[in-house]
Structure formats: C-alpha cells, structure tokens
Amino acid sequence: MQQLLMIEDDARLAQMVGEYLERSGFTVTHALDAKAGMALLQDPQGGVPVDLLVLDLMLPDMDGLEVCRRVRAMPGEVGKVPVLMLTAKGDPMDRIVGLELGADDYLPKPFEPRELLARIRAILRRRSDGAAPAAKLLRFGSLEIDRDARTVTVAGQPAELTSYQFDLLIALAERAGRVLTRDQIMEAVRGRELEAFDRSIDVHMGRIRAAIEVDAKNPKRILTVRGVGYVFAKQQD
C-alpha cells in the first residue's frame, strides 16, 4: 500500500481528505505544520517511507514553497519524493514558483477530493511506468540518462530533477530530433489531461535546462521551436 504524507494545517480538511484517500487504497500520515512533516520525512527511525508528499502552501511555521525547496535539498531518495502542492492563492505566479522549486504538480483550493486522487494517481503512475522496456541507458555526448535508476548525469556529475522533470526529459530524449508540441509532450508523460497549463511545461523545461545544459540561457540539448514546442537535439557534445 502506497504511503502519502500530507502537511496541512487545516485538521478538518486533512481528516476528510485523508479518509477519502485511505478508502481509495492509500495509507495517509498527517502533519499539522512544516516542522512535524519534515521530521517525518527525515527521521529514519520514526519517519515514514513516503511515496508522495501533499504539501499545503500556507503553513503556520513555514511557507510551503520553502518546505518544497528544503525537501528537494534533502539527500537520497527523500529529496526526490514527488510533491503535489495545495494552494489557496489564485495568483498563477505562486504555482509557477512552486514548480520552479521542484513541485511535480499543484491543485488550487477549494478542490474536489476526486481530482486530488486523480492527480496523485497520475504522478505515481508516471513514476512507476518511468522505465520503458527499451535500452536502460540513453547517452547523448556527456549526458547519460538511466531509465531503471531514474538518474541523470552530465560528465559524470548527477543532475537533480524531480520525478516529473525526469519523465519530461525521457519523453524528449526518446524522440530526439523530432519537434514536439506542448500537448504532445504532456500526452507522452501521461496524467496531465486534467489541465493543459502550458506555462507549467515551460517552467519545467527551464529547470531541466538548468540541470543538464552547460549554459541554460544558450541551450544545446533542449531547443525551443518558437510557436510550436521543443526538440531534443540528436547531435550534442
């Protein structure tokens, strides 16, 4: 049974959503604030092996964006845990910043528990299906993508990507030389049918470039085709 950690200061909402998710086959652990939630993630003794983190943006002791940033800085698999951010704010910039900090998805409040469940399943499905029955390693010059380990290295150095960003990179690399629209990219990674928020793709592409390009402002691997989408270059360093 997959384990979810919810960091949410609204105890009533957390209980309602937690019960719904547990009826849907998940185990849910709840923390009322950032300190308690991060302790559960970090503590190897009393902590929980989290498969996905549901993180509220507005917490009493720490901004959810800062929590996301700190989680991504944690070592090992803990730092790679998928993050679904809940936000009560209507400003798209809050969502963009969350994605830039490493969140895999977001859901504005108020929301239907059924939509939250669908998004959670989509994120976990992308992670479990990430290793396709093809070559384990994809190599493009100094860039190496390991499907099974879900790791990326550039000149032997690890490149830090979220689960969703890894899937985006795989989708592009498998189709090297082919121009893909944003819709085609979202279709390739699956699970984004709930909302075609093009800007989120652009944000993630920026983060991927920052991780794998020598100069993210002058990319050589992931190229923008203006008015169309993106293409992964076949010929690289």
Rank of each mutant, 00 (worst) to 15 (best):
G79Q: 01
Q235K: 14
A210D: 10
G229S: 05
Y164I: 08
L13R: 06
R175S: 12
R12H: 13
H30C: 06
R147E: 09
M6V: 07
Q184D: 06
G37N: 05
P110K: 06
Q157M: 08
L223P: 08
P92E: 02
V28L: 10
V189H: 04
V28H: 01
K234D: 06
T27S: 15
V71F: 12
Q235H: 14
L4P: 00
R178Y: 09
A132Y: 14
Y164K: 13
T27E: 15
D105M: 09
D105T: 07
L57Y: 10
L107H: 09
L116C: 03
V189I: 15
P82F: 01
M38Y: 10
T224C: 11
A176L: 13
R119A: 01
P219M: 10
M93T: 14
R95L: 00
M205R: 11
A176P: 06
P108M: 11
A155M: 11
R192W: 05
D61L: 03
A216I: 04
E22C: 11
G79M: 05
A176C: 08
L13E: 00
L13A: 03
P133I: 09
M6A: 12
T87H: 11
A31F: 02
P110A: 01
A118E: 13
L124V: 00
A216T: 04
L53G: 00
A122G: 06
K35I: 13
L143E: 02
L40E: 02
S163T: 12
I123F: 09
G130E: 12
M58H: 13
L32F: 12
G156D: 04
D202V: 12
M205F: 09
R69V: 03
D10W: 03
P219H: 11
L57I: 02
